[in-house]
């Protein structure tokens, strides 16, 4: 029988072909609408450990699903789709797809930490929310946040030069986030700087922008630092 009431079913589960012939029988049109099953067919046994390796997620395995976190949650009061208890359960069983479905709201945690204070098993749900947001960013499930992009630009300069040049960080950040350099505040800031900055400082400033100097005796420090950070990350994330 054709399925008429489709609003009750998630759109991605509806299969429909405008034209379809099966074994010589024309079943074009709404005749061939099918629904894929909702059944969960496996757990991802390694997922919990992956989240536990991210700072904040360490205690996720302690959860016994009492629901205190969701009950106390500031965001849940705004949006019942925001359900920390449920995501924690999905982490424990490795139901990744269930979490990815909510990728656009997990990051909305406001870190009020009411959940952390009320949790009888010391799961630290706020930390789990953070760990989940980080995991999704690292996996490319969600786009990098502006703050992550800023951090990356900042760190790259440190590795290369042992110091940052403000204008380069700004330029890099705006370029990578697709924003114009001609920000209103920046123009005002630049004009005032030009007007009031002592000439000697202005020259030094300009030289730094053009020459990109490194910190004295920086040598291979950047390389070593980069290597160390990489090793630490690998150790933490397995």
């Amino acid at each position: 029988m054709a399925i008429h009431e489709k609003s009750l079913i998630e759109p991605e589960r509806l299969l429909h072909h405008d034209e379809l012939v099966v074994d010589g029988v024309d079943v074009s049109g709404h005749w061939n609408t099918m629904i894929t099953p909702r059944t969960l067919t496996d757990y991802d046994d390694d997922f919990e450990a992956k989240i536990q390796a991210i700072p904040g997620g360490e205690n996720v395995h302690r959860c016994w699903q009492c629901g205190s976190c969701t009950n106390s949650c500031t965001m849940y009061a705004q949006n019942v789709q925001f359900n920390p208890r449920y995501w924690i359960y999905a982490v424990r069983l490795g139901l990744k797809e269930e979490i990815i479905k909510d990728k656009d709201i997990v990051w909305q945690c406001v870190s009020c930490n009411k959940c952390t204070n009320i949790c009888p098993k010391d799961v630290r749900p706020e930390g789990v929310m953070k760990a989940l947001a980080h995991w999704m960013e690292e996996e490319g499930i969600t786009e990098k946040t502006p703050s992550t992009i800023f951090d990356e630009e900042f760190t790259e300069q440190i590795y290369a030069r042992g110091r940052i040049e403000d204008s380069h960080v700004l330029m890099g950040f705006y370029k990578k986030t697709g924003q114009s350099m001609f920000q209103n505040w920046l123009q005002v800031f630049g004009l005032r700087l030009a007007r009031h900055l002592p000439v000697s400082l202005g020259l030094k400033f300009g030289r730094n922008v053009l020459m990109k100097p490194r910190t004295k005796s920086w040598g291979r420090t950047g390389e070593v630092l980069q290597q160390y950070v990489r090793e630490q990350k690998e150790a933490a994330h397995g």
Binding site: P37, T39, L40, T41, D42, Y43, Q65, Y86, Y89
Partner: peptide, 12 residues
């Protein structure tokens, strides 16, 4: 049925 996920399960 996993009553917390509200979905049927068939797990090996």
């Amino acid at each position: 049925e996993d009553t917390l996920v509200k979905r049927p399960i068939v797990i090996p």
